[in-house]
């Protein structure tokens, strides 16, 4: 099973409850805005500690409140592509790409920098500062940075949001290639029905 998630979390008066299993290569998590989709991703990545539940990815338990398992984010190895990109503003694109790559154990790396640069067409951006990138360029760098950290799974939070149609189509095709060519389970949060239908092998709804 790629994803095996059951969690309950309360923020203020909003309660999030979700349980799903999936062995689809690309699982889409959908639901109305404010339902807590990003919170679920943060729980899986280890940035938020859910009140209770159990999270396992490809058989590895990342969190289990009953057995007091709670791996810190750096040991979960999530390739998390944030909705807002979060490129390091003081580092050039090349240093952003290298950040996670340098921290990944060499034996775990499954994709090289050259391959990522070619796949995402970002070779001409390496010396740029993040503030000078367009939305689509920043998104491609963010996905590349996540892949180079040798993640065991990918979390994509609205990767097509805030992009114009041609740019969104570009990223969509990239996600398709990641799904079809790279051996890595993907959990995608999206609010666009057309994109989810085109990409996802399984859809999970968060009410």
């Amino acid at each position: 099973m790629f994803f095996d998630v059951a969690l309950a979390h309360r923020i203020g008066d909003r309660a999030i409850e979700l349980a799903f299993v999936s062995d689809a290569r690309l699982t889409a998590l959908v639901g109305p805005s404010g339902a807590g989709k990003t919170t679920v991703l943060n729980c899986i990545a280890g940035l938020i500690r859910p009140d209770s539940g159990r999270i396992a990815v490809e058989g590895k338990v990342l969190f289990d409140s009953a057995r007091h398992v709670d791996l810190p984010p750096e040991r979960r190895r999530a390739g998390y592509v944030f909705q807002d990109g979060r490129l390091f503003s003081h580092l050039r694109v090349s240093a952003n790409l290298a950040y996670g790559e340098r921290l990944a154990p060499p034996g775990d790396r499954w994709i090289g920098r050259e391959e990522v640069i070619a796949l995402f067409g970002i070779g001409h951006l390496l010396n740029r500062m993040p503030a000078t990138l367009s939305g689509g360029e920043a998104k491609r760098v963010a996905i590349g940075r996540a892949l180079l950290a040798a993640p065991r799974f990918l979390l994509l939070d609205e990767p097509f949001g805030s992009l114009d149609a041609p740019r969104a189509e570009e990223i969509l095709q990239l996600v398709e290639r990641i799904r079809d060519e790279l051996e890595i389970p993907v959990l995608l949060v999206s609010h666009s029905g057309a994109e989810v239908e085109r990409l996802a092998d399984k859809v999970v709804t968060l009410a």
Binding site: A45, G46, L47, P72, P73, E74, R76, R77, A78, G79, Y80, F82, D84, R86, F88, S89, Y99, G100, L103, A104, R145, A146, A149
Partner: peptide, 15 residues
């Protein structure tokens, strides 16, 4: 300093 950048660094493997 945006704490979310620190979060991003953690998911990339930084203690």
């Amino acid at each position: 300093v945006d704490r979310r950048l620190v979060d991003a660094a953690r998911t990339l493997g930084a203690r």
